[in-house]
């Protein structure tokens, strides 16, 4: 029982990341009809946003190390500490949460310029060409990051205050053995909040209503004198922000390197397919579902029966779904079913 509960928790935070990325993918597909292979790169850019903010905050200069008196020793001390003392240290400690604030406008800008600069020329081209051009873009972004930050993962720790583990076991009246890192809990709740915000935005605002109408019947909305393309562009920017935020928050869990985006992209695409292309609810549900399935598959008990199942479970599920129910779990009937 405890083990099962723990595995579900384990799966949920990874599932949260899948859901956030897949939501953006499926939004782009549902609105603009674009298959965006560069979406993983946006996730990575978000993570590197956290890395850069951290690097910016810890800009240091060499000062004399007073604690060593035998000889002249020097150490790096961040400017922020020199200027503001303890407050500066705290600010550095909170680098990741601060990057969220920076990431929102930045990712929006990147998303909008990506759509206006490249994607809009590909509305009318085939899916194959869309895949290929965004694949090329993903390589370009990835290599630029590699050129600037190197090929090694860069640790970006979460604030000290949440670095420990939460004793959820005792809090919920289960075994005390169930402990869970605070940051992963935060990630989970963060992703739920972001997902809820996106859904609320699409469900309860006029803008969202137009977007939903446009997803359903684009030409009709156009005929009513609404510039759907413009709205969809903003939706693409929104999708970029969501992917970027997922990346920022994931940086403390997995130190980002340049190919983190590609790794997540392939899985998120599978998530979208399982959920149903263009279905928002499907993407979210499938994201969490596959996250949990994956964490169950990596249990030792399961692995001893089916060796290697943890590596392939997600792909296996996708293959089965595509063959049995091609429109995905919650896909609309008739959308991309052949």
């Amino acid at each position: 029982m405890d083990a099962i509960f723990l595995q579900i928790l384990n799966g949920l935070d990874k599932g949260g990341a899948y859901a956030l990325i897949a939501l953006g993918l499926t939004l782009a597909f549902g609105t603009l009809g674009i298959v965006n292979f560069a979406h993983g790169a946006l996730f990575m850019l978000g993570a590197f946003c956290a890395v850069s903010i951290q690097a910016l905050l810890t800009l240091s200069k060499k000062v004399k190390d007073e604690s060593i008196t035998f000889f002249d020793a020097y150490k790096e001390q961040p400017y922020l500490e020199i200027w503001w003392g303890d407050i500066g240290t705290t600010i550095i400690d909170y680098a990741v949460p601060i990057s969220i604030l920076a990431a929102i406008p930045l990712m929006l800008l990147i998303g909008l310029s990506m759509e206006r600069g490249l994607i809009r020329f590909f509305y009318k081209r085939t899916h194959a060409e869309q895949i290929l051009v965004t694949f090329g873009l993903a390589i370009v972004i990835q290599e630029l990051i590699k050129a600037n930050f190197g090929a090694n993962p860069i640790p970006t720790p979460a604030p000290d205050i949440v670095s420990g583990s939460a004793k959820i076991g005792s809090a919920l009246g289960l075994s005390d053995a169930i402990v869970y890192p605070w940051w992963r809990l935060i990630y989970l709740s963060f992703s739920v909040v972001v997902l809820a915000a996106v859904f609320a935005f699409l469900q309860f605002t006029t803008f969202g209503m137009v977007v939903r109408a446009g997803m359903h019947d684009r030409d009709m909305v156009n005929l009513m004198g609404i510039d759907v393309e413009r709205k969809f562009t903003i939706v693409f920017g929104l999708a970029a922000v969501v992917a970027g935020l997922a990346g920022v928050m994931y940086a403390p869990i997995l130190p980002p390197d340049y190919h983190i985006g590609m790794d997540f992209l392939v899985l998120s695409f599978v998530v979208v397919v399982v959920g149903g292309m263009g279905s928002l609810g499907g993407a979210v549900a499938a994201g969490f579902l596959l996250g949990i399935l994956q964490s169950f598959a990596s249990m030792n008990e399961v692995k001893s029966i089916f060796p290697g199942i943890d590596q392939i479970i997600i792909y296996l599920v996708a293959v089965i779904i595509l063959l049995v129910r091609p429109r995905g779990l919650m896909g609309r009937k008739g959308v991309m079913e052949d």
Binding site: V35, H127, A128, I131, V266, F269, V270, V273, M277, G308, Q311, I312, Y315, L316, A318, V319, L322, L323, P326, M336, D338
Partner: peptide
């Protein structure tokens, strides 16, 4: 069994599966 983008994703999934295995 599928065509278009689904075919691409299926082949991708199989290739990743083989790679991981």
């Amino acid at each position: 069994r599928r065509s278009g983008i689904y075919f691409s994703i299926l082949t991708l999934a199989f290739a990743q599966m083989s790679y991981n295995l």
